[in-house]
Design a protein around this nucleic acid. Structure first.
Lengths: 157, 157
DNA sequence: TATTGTTATACTCTATAACTATA
DNA sequence: TATAGTTATAGAGTATAACAATA
């Protein structure tokens, strides 16, 4: 590779570059979501909830909390709001009368699909400067960076 | 096709890897800052304010707002809180009696220095798996990516 | 007794709008 | 009239603590 950077690269600079880039990307994604003609304002965190439910098909609120890395109380609020917008529904868990199961509505699934398309477009636009090989390199480097397998994926700040 | 990454690397996967990694890092940094024996809870945003002031030495609130990318009202709150914690001071701008200049206190400078040390440690820990060369590669790739001037940001459908 | 989810409360970060003092 | 900052208000995202129903 060309080595005009190799003079010095303290860890802190690498991390700052990473954070800065990520902020930029998230701003772009956010603008994307809020400026398009979506029927609902699907903020990063709200979208994250929907995606987590989508992955499981049906999930308990307590499980959802730990999957998202937030507290149960926080999930209650998200579910309240998303239920009001008819993006998901609460169902009693037949196996445990204390528990509540969450499912997406049809509409939520359509919305998620739309968001996914927008994100693909945005992602392509952001990566025009990187070749296929460079993209793979980037993914590999990020994968090596640390053990963060347990960390939930998210799109917000 | 020889290695397991080169099969396919859709843009969206690269972006997700980036965001996920960045979240992980920020959580680590945050834990670092809140768990260490810092006299003040220097959250990410609060720290960002201090660093912005630090860079300029002395800065108007309005300038600070645009430097941070937030509204003037938001800066008022930050400055209120940080002034109460004696991390910065408001001074009248002699050149314009409407304006207010912000300066760091001695204590803030000490705190920033401490935070910087902690972050360097944390950054090193996060990057143990990457060689010097890989770090440079990573910075370079991120630099290409964030070269957003060239990206025609037309995300229309 | 322990767990699930909710009520009650609060904090941080951010915004818009209306106002004041100055320019 | 326009700009700098503040007061007033609001909303999203998150937390802890106390509690009810159930296990």
């Amino acid at each position: 590779m060309t080595n005009h950077h190799s003079a010095k690269s303290p860890a802190i600079d690498v991390i700052h570059a990473l954070i800065k880039t990520s902020h930029y990307i998230q701003r772009e994604f956010d603008a994307q979501l809020t400026n398009h003609d979506m029927p609902f304002q699907l903020s990063g965190p709200r979208l994250r909830v929907l995606l987590a439910v989508s992955e499981e098909g049906e999930i308990r609120m307590s499980e959802l909390a730990s999957k998202l890395g937030v507290k149960a109380r926080t999930v209650t609020d998200f579910v309240d709001a998303l239920e009001k917008d008819q993006l998901l529904v609460r169902l009693p868990d037949p196996k445990d009368r204390r528990a509540t199961l969450i499912q997406l509505t049809e509409m939520a699934q359509v919305q998620i699909q739309k968001v996914h398309c927008l994100q693909e477009e945005a992602a392509e636009a952001l990566l025009t400067n990187l070749s296929e090989e460079q993209r793979n390199e980037l993914i590999e480097l990020l994968g090596n960076l640390a053990n963060y397998q347990n960390v939930p994926c998210s799109f917000e700040e």
